[in-house]
Design a protein around this nucleic acid. Structure first.
Lengths: 133, 133
DNA sequence: CTTAATTTGTTATAATATAACGTTTGTTAT
DNA sequence: ATAACAAACGTTATATTATAACAAATTAAG
């Protein structure tokens, strides 16, 4: 049983645990307010933790919302191939885990000879609940 | 010959023309500096023009860069289905115009019964020139 | 014309993110 | 264990991106 598990630092753990507990994406400053009782005082401390957590695939950034969400794909080996669904009404965000989609996009090649290493896809629409209402 | 062409206001024209002339995506404040000689003085004037131009499909926002680029797809009837390639080294951005890709993603359906109206896809990698270097 | 809608101009401020610096902690190789 | 290095931390200041609020001017439609 190899020690493959990344060892998170204190601030990284604190920030991650807040994001894990959240029901949806959190904004950086909302995270900051939530962790001030735990000794994290400055934006930079949050942003540094976020950067690292993204790097190791524990969380993702929802670019269209400047918000951060925990990765649902078993610590996201595929953090270089992310897709999300975003409800335009209730703002609920879900990670789309679809192997076909992921394969299709990972293999996609540009006309201009560019080879892609990574992609991020954001779908927008109405979620099931909001469609009914 | 129907008057389908949207009539742009003065500020919208000014902002659009700057973005059209640019070789790549422009940031809002860079646009602002560029148009100050033309009488646009405040960020809001730029942001309002940008908002409208996006709405009518003349430009797109590159979310990962907070920058704005002119639409290359004949005034983008498909502005609800956008895809871009972004070079991580030289930062060059291109709009990916691929009918198959666009169809595939437009038809994509979530497991959770969400019907998508719109998507934005950003590919990252090295462009042809940067691969060689 | 006149009413409604859109666009404008302006000031202020909110929200998001990074620079720069020195210190502390953790890891690795001897 | 300790030297050398890398990573993480704390702190202050500041840069960058974006919106609120309000009144005036312009444009479109009946």
């Amino acid at each position: 049983m190899t020690q493959k598990q990344e060892q998170l630092s204190k601030n990284q753990q604190i920030v991650l645990s807040i994001i894990e507990k959240a029901k949806g994406p959190l904004k950086a400053y909302s995270i900051l307010y939530n962790v001030q009782k735990k000794g994290i005082k400055a934006p930079l401390q949050v942003y540094r933790a976020l950067e690292k957590l993204i790097e190791i695939g524990k969380i993702h950034k929802i670019e269209s919302k400047n918000a951060f969400i925990v990765c649902k794909n078993s610590d996201c080996e595929i953090s270089k191939a992310t897709a999300f669904s975003i409800c335009e009404k209730c703002e609920v965000v879900d990670e789309v885990s679809n192997v076909k989609l992921s394969n299709y996009l990972s293999k996609f090649n540009d006309k201009k000879g560019m080879k892609f290493k990574r992609f991020n896809l954001e779908f927008f629409g109405l979620c099931k609940r909001c469609k009914i209402k």
